[in-house]
Design a protein around this nucleic acid. Structure first.
Lengths: 340, 340
DNA sequence: TGATAAACTGGAACCGGTTCCAATAAGGCG
DNA sequence: CGCCTTATTGGAACCGGTTCCAGTTTATCA
């Protein structure tokens, strides 16, 4: 690969001049010189070395995605979509995306150093909950970062997320508006976002004057034995509960519930209505397609990148929390309750 | 952040000595000096700058994942799992993973330059088919790379993939061994891997003396209107076809087919057997759980990283194609055909 | 104890760019 | 046409490490 030195020599100019040309906004260069240099640059197929440029500019044009546990991450359509959005926006802004994931977390202190003294100009942190140690390490070194969908709102720490309580509220309210009163809730019980969604569910019930029956609030996870499938079947088997609808905190839980109900012979939505949240690929693949809450997750990723880049460019601006809007998507899993 | 200069000053030594200590395998350093330097390094929380190190060593310890189309990538559990494996193995080997995806492909020439003169020591290319232009650009600059699951075998270009024809053969044969003779095949029709899997299906039929009925070979994709769900229903609706089993080229197509069949009132596997390939998360979530062919996809990712790192360390070794082993996973979607 | 080889360590050059500062060339004006 | 201001350009220092080379210690052995 040719270096800037080679180009300079070929032009008969100093490398500082060549540098000015390729960073075209610098000190002025005469039009004739600029053209000449550009021609040689094209001819030699010159591209400045990212590392050399990074070292002297103290800027890599690379942003990092930090995630803790690999398993649920990329295999779940949700985070995958966010990352797609991030990757697209980053590419559009000529940024490279680095993925920090998994094993790197074994040694916290080392990880922090790696991040701090590594390549990235800033970080997008995708975790179910914020990590205070990580936050303060980055903060201490003045490295910009942004929590994406972490649920928490901490003062002085930027974040972007939907209003999870409102999300739960909206979906539950949607069911209530269709006439349901015995509505079950399936949530994960551990993740911040899931708990908030459940709280939104409770608020909607309360507001409608429906007493919350704790037997209808159950936890499930993405593992076969305790998935939404089994939980839905347990709820439906106990006919004395009399549920007519299920609100699930995520689309995966919701579609599992749909299939659980169908396999027991229930018809969705005539016998039982189901709603989810997220509008991931699972919602569309579900049969019947799932009524859910879209958070335009790829656009959220795009937005996250832009906010971070903005922060990198202007580090002194005040930090902020962004509440990302949601939109109810009506598909085919909700109907009025049958009299029973 | 302290620099190596600061550490050297604090130790009263030259920075070359400090450098030797932190790269501990270099020229010898006395035990006393090493200890002293290490102590100061720890006290000052020193971590060498990745960029400076990269520049002078001409090595970034960063590998890139290159993918063309974002959409099917991360949202599909398959590539997501591969990337998980890659990320884990990379982290274990102290490598950073960069994600080159999507928009970057708009300008081919520029992309190639970006890759060639960018950060990465080598690339893992995840695409359905190889890209000759990309290959030759990387080859010309002596940058190591490895195609992962690209289907093609090109001389002098390293790749790792399962034997797709064999995969199709194995699954079809599994159905034949259970007594099926009217076996449908659902494949994507466009992707190299999918076509090869179909060819394997045909070979298995031929070998068993079963004539291939082209009406049973259909194409489907991940979009609602032309998914495995619809295709399976079309096949089952036409009872004159008399199919008793479906071989699908991927787990997504297969689970869609399962649900299509179930929604028509067929029982899986008693009325109709279904098999897929890949053993992604969908296979386990399927109800009943899908009989499929595992390719231990995360381990494949791990292996890909190791092969690439090996190549980076020893660039002169001959290139090779790796055929990744597969394993049939019997779950609950296959049974002998009912007499009908 | 002195000569000689081996082990350490310091200094300088280098990786490939950017940027500050000074020098030179060009342009404007009386 | 000569002087002053401004636009261009070259040179050197710097970003933060690594590594080669040579000089200084220390160890070994006669």
């Amino acid at each position: 690969m040719p270096t800037i030195e080679d180009v300079a020599k070929a032009c008969g100019m100093a490398k500082s001049t060549v540098s000015r040309v390729i960073n075209n906004s610098q000190g002025n260069v005469s039009a004739r010189t600029r053209e000449h240099v550009m021609k040689v640059v094209r001819e030699m197929n010159f591209q400045p070395s990212a590392m050399a440029q990074g070292l002297s500019k103290q800027r890599s044009n690379m942003i990092g995605i930090v995630t803790r546990n690999a398993n649920h991450l990329l295999t779940d359509g949700y985070y995958g979509s966010v990352i797609n959005g991030i990757a697209d926006a980053a590419a559009a802004a000529n940024q490279v995306v680095a993925l920090y994931q998994g094993v790197i977390w074994k040694d916290e202190a080392k990880t922090q150093l790696t991040l701090v003294n590594g390549w990235c100009d800033g970080f997008l942190i995708l975790m179910a909950n914020q990590d205070a140690a990580l936050s303060s390490a980055l903060l201490a070194h003045g490295i910009p970062f942004l929590y994406v969908n972490s649920g928490d709102l901490v003062d002085g720490i930027m974040s972007i997320d939907i209003d999870n309580a409102d999300a739960g509220y909206k979906m539950t309210r949607h069911l209530i508006e269709h006439g349901h009163r015995r509505i079950a809730c399936i949530h994960t019980g551990v993740d911040q976002f899931s708990i908030e969604r459940r709280d939104g569910y409770k608020r909607a019930l309360q507001e409608a004057g429906i007493e919350c029956d704790e037997r209808l609030v159950v936890t499930a996870f993405y593992k076969p034995e305790i998935s939404g499938y089994e939980r839905a079947q347990e709820l439906l088997r106990n006919t004395s509960l009399g549920i007519t609808a299920i609100f699930a905190a995520t689309d995966v839980l919701a579609t599992d519930a749909v299939y659980g109900a169908k396999d027991m012979g229930f018809h969705v939505p005539d016998d039982i209505s189901v709603v989810g949240i997220n509008d991931t690929a699972e919602a569309l693949r579900c049969n019947p397609p799932l009524t859910t809450l879209s958070q335009s997750v790829e656009e959220l990723g795009v937005n996250a990148v832009n906010v971070l880049l903005d922060r990198i460019a202007r580090p002194t601006q005040p930090s902020r929390h962004i509440t990302w809007p949601t939109r109810l998507v009506e598909r085919e899993t909700v109907a009025p309750p049958k009299n029973r």
